[in-house]
Write a protein that binds this DNA or RNA. Structure first.
Length: 423
RNA sequence: GGAGAAUUGGCAGAGUGGUCGAUUGCGGUAGUCUUGAAAACUAUUGUACCGAGAGGUACCGGGGGUUCGAAUCCCUCAUUCUCCGCCA
């Protein structure tokens, strides 16, 4: 949620920023400013009425205790009238408040100045590339064929038991999953992130806090009977631990990590994008989250990017980093870097991580603040990134490391798998 | 799942219809004393919002209600504890 103060003071800059996303919000912004103005006026008026009412009520109490019943009864009538007035004003204030907050909630975050403008994935900017594609005499196979050949993943079984996008991993496939999770968590711990194991369902407030709700495109699974949501990413529980929190000083740098399954409805996906492991309804991911004061955000973001880089390098994967253009940047983010690995069997780049900063967009919704040097409360900044999401890493490992003798496990992973080859 | 009890400021814990945003203790902060520290003493110490300011409004687990007036009465939901039942 954009800070209202920012809208008021820098209307032009905000509009300019949102324009980069390809949306013209002039009318929305002006509506918000108008609602805000009206809300303030209504609120001030209401408070005056309440103050009057409080004064009279106290007076009535005093009169009763001194036995002046007649006077008290008179005042009582007066206050009944005022109370009616107060009720009207109160509902007006609430109405305006709702209008205001739903209008402001519907605005996405403002892209940072360094974010390129553009509409979709075609306008993303390549900022880094590393490694080279594996050379092989034969045509590399796609991971869904390899998974079948080595009995690592059973997609049909998943369809039978649950539905498309819910595969079973078996044997060395399952062990590889477990190894990757341990490897990623261990690396995150080494980098100073505290490990958490979190709930996999969250309540509505948490969904709103990190920006998944009000629901955009049916991203989350909703458990109707208990009104809970299955998490689409560990970002939601990990960040919401700090909802409604006031950190006592400005001496903090909060780093947390956690592994969770992630559940995504992925409504509207189709075709070759969803083949094999490319897009699943349930997948495993290790997430890193940081909560920082504004001065430290820049360096925190760089550290996170370096962390993800090091993971990919240790796994020996060819990868590239894209700075997303404004139009392709998520609703809540102010800048996002996507990491993609090259997958030889499909001759395709697969997104395996997104590292984003949110500035105060999430913390404003979360009411996550800290006390600065002058003892003033200020909004924290939040960041998060995948480190990493498993399925496409598995896809790339299978496709890139295939040999006539089997699939070679990267050296860094062997201590976690306990085997060097899948064959 | 059933029965009972509870939920008050950073913590402990008073307060059962009016002057209570809330007694008190601990803790925190500042000061006095001290070479310094401790102790003692004194003062101060919640959050958010509206207002140019003076000041005001809201908040005693959440929501709703009764009343001129609610921490206090009623309804409802949540959570915690105790007992019973069931169970990985």
């Amino acid at each position: 949620m954009i800070e209202i103060q920012r809208l008021k003071e820098n209307r032009a800059e905000v509009l300019e920023g949102l324009k980069k996303r390809g949306i013209n919000s002039e009318q929305d912004v002006d509506k918000i400013l108008m609602f805000d103005q009206q809300w303030r006026e209504a609120k001030t008026k209401l408070q005056e009425t309440s103050a009057n009412l409080n004064t009279i009520s106290k007076e009535v109490g005093k009169l009763f205790s001194t036995g002046e019943r007649d006077k008290a009864e008179g005042l009582k009538l007066q206050s009944i009238e005022l109370k009616r007035e107060e009720a009207v004003q109160k509902s007006r204030v609430e109405e305006l408040q709702n209008e205001l907050s739903s209008a402001i909630m519907s605005l996405p975050n403002i892209p940072r100045p360094e974010v390129p403008s553009g509409k979709d994935a075609n306008d993303n900017e390549l900022v880094f590339e590393s490694g080279s594609s594996p050379t092989s005499e034969s045509v590399p196979k796609a991971h869904w064929d390899l998974a079948k050949e080595y009995q690592l993943i059973d997609f049909e079984l998943g369809v039978k038991v649950t539905g498309a996008g819910f595969p079973f991993y078996r044997g060395k496939g399952a062990k590889l999953q477990r190894a990757l999770i341990s490897f990623f968590l261990e690396e995150a711990s080494q980098a100073g992130y505290e490990e958490f194991s979190s709930p996999l369902m969250v309540n509505e407030e948490s969904g709103v806090g990190t920006g998944q709700l009000p629901d955009k495109e049916g991203m989350m699974y909703h458990v109707g009977g208990d009104d809970l949501y299955l998490i689409p990413t560990a970002e939601v529980p990990l960040t919401n631990m700090y909802r409604n929190t006031l950190l006592p000083n400005d001496d903090f740098s909060i780093r947390i990590t956690g592994h969770t399954p992630c559940f995504r409805r992925e409504a509207g996906s189709y075709g070759k994008d969803v083949r094999g492991l490319n897009r699943l309804h349930q997948f495993e991911k290790v997430e890193i989250v940081r909560i920082e004061k504004p001065e430290n955000v820049e360096s925190a973001l760089n550290e996170m990017i370096d962390h993800v880089k090091s993971l990919l390098e240790k796994l020996g994967l060819q990868y590239r980093i894209l700075k997303l253009c404004a139009g392709d940047t998520g609703f809540a983010a102010s800048i996002t870097y996507d990491f993609e690995v090259y997958s030889a069997g499909q001759d395709k780049w697969l997104e395996v991580s997104s590292v984003s900063r949110f500035d105060t967009f999430q913390s404003n919704r979360l009411k996550l603040r800290y006390k600065d040097q002058n003892n003033k409360s200020k909004l924290c900044h939040t960041l998060n990134g995948s480190a990493l999401a498993l399925p496409r890493i598995v896809a790339a490992l299978l496709e890139n490391n295939q040999t006539p003798k089997g699939i070679k496990i990267p050296e860094a992973l062997v201590p976690y798998t306990g085997f060097e080859m899948i064959n």
